[in-house]
Structures are given as C-alpha cells and as structure tokens.
Computed example of a mutant assay.
Amino acid sequence: MIITSPAIVVHSLRYSEADLIVSLFTKTSGLRSYLLRGILKSKRGKLRSSLFQPLTILEIQAVHRDKGSLERIKEAKVKTMYKTLHTDYVKSALAFFISEVLKNAIHEEETNTALFEYLETTLLWLDTHNVVRNFHIAFLIKLTQYLGCYPDTSNIESEYFNMLDGVFQSQSNNTYCVNGERVVQLKRFLGTTFEESMDIGLSKNVRSDILAMLLVYFELHLHGFKKPKSLSVLNEIFN
C-alpha cells in the first residue's frame, strides 16, 4: 500500500556503510521504521540524509507492507522548514532530548492523530519562541495526556505526589511518593499553556529535580522507557 503522510523524524541509525534505518512518527500510520538503502553515499537520489535530522517535519510517500518489517520511502521533502531548532544550541539540545524521549515512549504502529498534531504544534512553538527554559518540563507533562498517564489532579491540594499511581495524596504509602518544592512547582505546570509555563520561575536545582521526577514517572508508566542519554547535556545547559 502506498501512503502519503506528514511524518516527524524520531530516530535514525546507520546500517552498514551506506544505509540508514529511520523511525518516523507518521500522522496516518503511527510509528514506522524505514530502510534507506545507499542514502549515505547517494548524490543523485531523491532522498538525502540531511532530511532525517531529529524532529524534522516531513511529507513522505512510502510503501507500507504492514508485515512488521522495515518499510520503504519513495519520496520525502521538508513539510515545514525550521528557522532555529537545528541551529540554536539550546534548542538543538532540546531536540535531541525530545527525540530520545519519543524513541522510548512511542511504540505503536497505529494512527494517533492527536499525538501527531501535539508534537507538530509544540515543535513549531519551540522553533519560533526565544524563552524556552521550561520547555522540556512542560513538554513532558503535556505528553502524558496523549500517552494515557496524565496525573490525576482531583486531590491536587495534597502534599504528596504518588508517582506509581499518578495521584496526589495527603500521606506517603510507598517509595515513589514525593513531596517538597519539586511537587509544589509541578502543580504550577498542570493545566497551563506553554507561554504560561515559561514564566514559572525555577531554580536550577528544582528544575533538575522536576525533570528527574518526570523521567522516573515515565519509567513507571511506559513499558521499556529508558532515561535519555542526552539528559546530562540538557542539565548542563540549563544549570
């Protein structure tokens, strides 16, 4: 079956001398992996390796056999050209971090239009805004809405956040119950827009603590999720 769809580059991996395996989150077919033969040596082909930088938004035409194997891309072009995402060093670090999060968090080969539109909208927001110090925090929290594990805020006034159950409660009853400043500040992000989230003042330690807490939360709720290797770089930049 030939499909035409917008797609976001999640991950690319060199395979042999000249091939790439790329994972794309497509609007029509969910997460798919493609084998791009000879792309690293090709100078005249329709596809260029530069198209497959992390989080590039593409328009692709692809052949899907839907047999659980690697699919084939016939054509690809940039759907929306970024202005700063791959040139600004802070945003570039955020892009690598987000692509790692998505690589570990999304596994379904099924349509999820709402998630695709969320990713596209937030990436374009990141590209066009200058104040992005809390972007990764807001991004992760809002991402849980589309992954089915958004925190239950019905008892948000309670002191403890139970990461295992995703609820706020008045007492600690397991090792994944946390409290303190990181929970106080986490509550400020819940229900806010990206613009409002950027105005939340955080010390470098609290920002780092919230991020670490959220990654543990993802590990608890998303099967196979692993802490991104780019975390140390991101913490260094924002600290």
Rank of each mutant, 00 (worst) to 15 (best):
M1W: 06
I2N: 11
T4N: 15
T4R: 15
T4M: 13
A7C: 03
H11C: 09
S12Q: 06
R14G: 08
S16M: 11
S16D: 10
E17S: 15
A18E: 10
L20D: 12
L20W: 11
I21Y: 02
V22S: 04
S23K: 15
L24T: 04
K27D: 00
S29Y: 05
S33E: 14
Y34R: 05
R37I: 11
G38R: 03
K41H: 14
S42I: 12
S42R: 07
G45I: 11
L47C: 01
R48V: 03
F52T: 02
F52M: 06
Q53T: 09
Q53K: 14
P54E: 03
P54V: 03
L55N: 02
T56V: 11
I57G: 08
H64Y: 15
R65P: 04
S69Y: 15
I73Q: 05
E75C: 04
K77Y: 05
K79R: 04
K83V: 04
T84L: 01
T84G: 01
D88T: 00
S92G: 02
S92H: 03
L94P: 04
F96W: 01
F97G: 04
S99D: 01
E100Q: 11
V101Y: 07
L102W: 01
A105Y: 07
I106S: 05
H107A: 12
E108R: 15
T111E: 12
A114D: 07
A114S: 11
L115M: 12
Y118T: 07
Y118I: 08
Y118Q: 05
L119Q: 00
L119T: 01
L124A: 02
L124I: 15
D127L: 12
H129T: 06
N130P: 01
V131M: 10
V131H: 11
V132I: 09
V132E: 04
V132S: 01
V132M: 02
N134Y: 06
F135A: 11
H136E: 13
H136Q: 09
I137G: 00
I141Q: 02
Q145V: 11
Y146Q: 08
C149Q: 08
Y150Q: 03
P151K: 03
T153A: 12
N155S: 13
N155K: 14
N155T: 14
E157F: 14
E157I: 06
N162R: 08
L164P: 01
L164M: 11
D165S: 08
V167Y: 10
S170Q: 06
S170C: 03
Q171R: 12
S172D: 04
N174K: 00
N174D: 12
T175K: 13
V178L: 13
V178Q: 09
G180A: 09
V183I: 14
Q185H: 04
K187Q: 07
G191M: 03
F194H: 12
M198S: 03
V206Q: 03
D209V: 10
D209L: 09
I210Q: 11
I210E: 01
L211M: 07
L211G: 02
A212W: 10
M213I: 05
L215W: 10
Y217E: 01
F218I: 04
F218W: 05
G224R: 12
G224L: 15
K227Y: 12
K229N: 05
K229E: 14
S232T: 11
E236S: 08
N239A: 05
N239Y: 06
